[in-house]
Computed example of a mutant assay.
Amino acid sequence: MAGKRAQRTTGTQGPEGAAKVTISEIAREAGVSVPTVSRVVNGRSDVSPGTRARVEDLLHRHGYRRRPGAPGARAALLDLVFNDLDSPWAVEIIRGVEEVAHEQGMGTVVSAIHDRAGAARQWMTNLRARASDGVILVTSMLEPGPGLHDELRRLGVPLVVIDPAGSPATEVFTVGATNWAGGMAATEHLLGLGHRRIGFIAGPPRLLCSRARLDGYRAALDVGGAPVDDELIVPGDFYHESGFTGTNRLLDLDEPPTAIFAASDQMALGAIEALRQRGLRVPEDMSIVGFDDLPEVRWSSPPLTTVRQPLSDMGKLAARAVLDLARSVEPASPRVELSTELVIRASTTNPRRV
């Protein structure tokens, strides 16, 4: 773990009885965040030389001396906030963030809001108490609007968002994947196999990534000269049950699809189970494509064709970005999208000829 952290709000009396100066005041004068000053005070190495020199000069001029370590002083922490944690998808994000935090000698606090009344307010109360060095929000209903962003800025805590649910404030750094391109690649793959009626099980419409995958699906059909049939597009929520339900809905159509593109791997696995219960085989009777490339889908029966998004890398990038912001290093761009990749396995083939 990292060394002890200086108190955020109090210093010691300066030379010749001068008034106390606080870390917050030093940070304001230096034009950096409170965590950055705290790192300098604690002798941490993760501060740029120029920033360190500026802060140390102010500390010296104001006669700041670190107060003796108080019992229970906290180690450096990153806050990682999800809406839900009941998905292997979340585990991959956590894996990436934790790797960077471990490299930096930091701890990671993982929270889930679960859309519960008062949960966001309680999380903010807890955040103030543990004096986090940075916050990463992941497709959370706790959206980085003016209220949240202003409060985090007041606390000197930088913010990064992975897969924003809506359009975040322009000053918020975001990390995502090329969801539109991934949706197009999955659909083009099925079209290339000869499928013309391709069902689509959508994700939650409130999420930008869901809408981008649907738009990619529609674009591929349009480019490929296949009709966009709205009855082939069914709602889902990224979880197994909605994939199961959506597949049954597609199979009950007068003219069912010959292939299904599910906007998440979990929904794709739900689709495979729905087909199994109806005595249909994958891919002989129905081709299936997912999205995410979770570790488990390599071992599904059959192994799943899917669009890989680099979830762990997204977590790493977000963690490094929030630490850079804490050191007053601004990102080159406020938006970063990592590339997706189509991974072809055994769940897709040419449509069966009747």
Rank of each mutant, 00 (worst) to 15 (best):
G3M: 03
R5H: 07
R5P: 00
A6N: 06
T9K: 02
T12M: 13
Q13V: 12
G14W: 02
P15Q: 12
E16L: 11
A18M: 00
A18N: 10
A27G: 03
R28Q: 14
V41H: 03
V55T: 10
R61P: 01
H62V: 06
G63N: 08
R66P: 01
G69C: 04
R74D: 07
D84K: 10
L85Q: 05
A90Q: 14
A90G: 04
V91Q: 14
I94L: 03
I94F: 01
Q104A: 11
G105C: 09
M106G: 11
S111A: 15
S111T: 11
S111D: 01
I113K: 14
A119Q: 04
W123D: 03
L127I: 11
A131Q: 15
S132A: 13
D133N: 12
V135G: 02
V138H: 09
S140V: 12
P144S: 08
P144K: 03
P146W: 03
L148S: 02
L152C: 07
R153I: 04
R154V: 06
L155D: 07
A165I: 14
A165Q: 07
S167Y: 04
V175T: 03
G176E: 01
A177C: 15
T178K: 13
A181S: 15
L190I: 13
H195T: 11
H195K: 10
H195W: 09
I198V: 11
I201M: 00
P204L: 06
S210V: 06
L221M: 00
L221I: 05
D229R: 08
D237E: 03
D237I: 08
H240L: 09
E241V: 04
T245N: 07
T245R: 10
R249A: 01
L251Y: 04
E255N: 11
T258F: 02
A259E: 12
A259L: 09
I260Q: 05
A263F: 12
D265Y: 03
Q266F: 00
L275W: 00
G279R: 14
V282S: 12
V282N: 05
P283E: 09
I288F: 12
F291C: 07
D292Y: 02
R298I: 06
W299F: 12
S301E: 11
P302T: 12
P302K: 05
T306S: 15
R308G: 00
Q309M: 06
D313A: 09
K316L: 03
A319V: 06
R320E: 07
V322K: 05
A326L: 04
R327K: 13
S333V: 12
V343P: 05
V343Q: 00
R345N: 04
A346C: 06
T348H: 09
P351V: 07
P351M: 00
P351K: 01
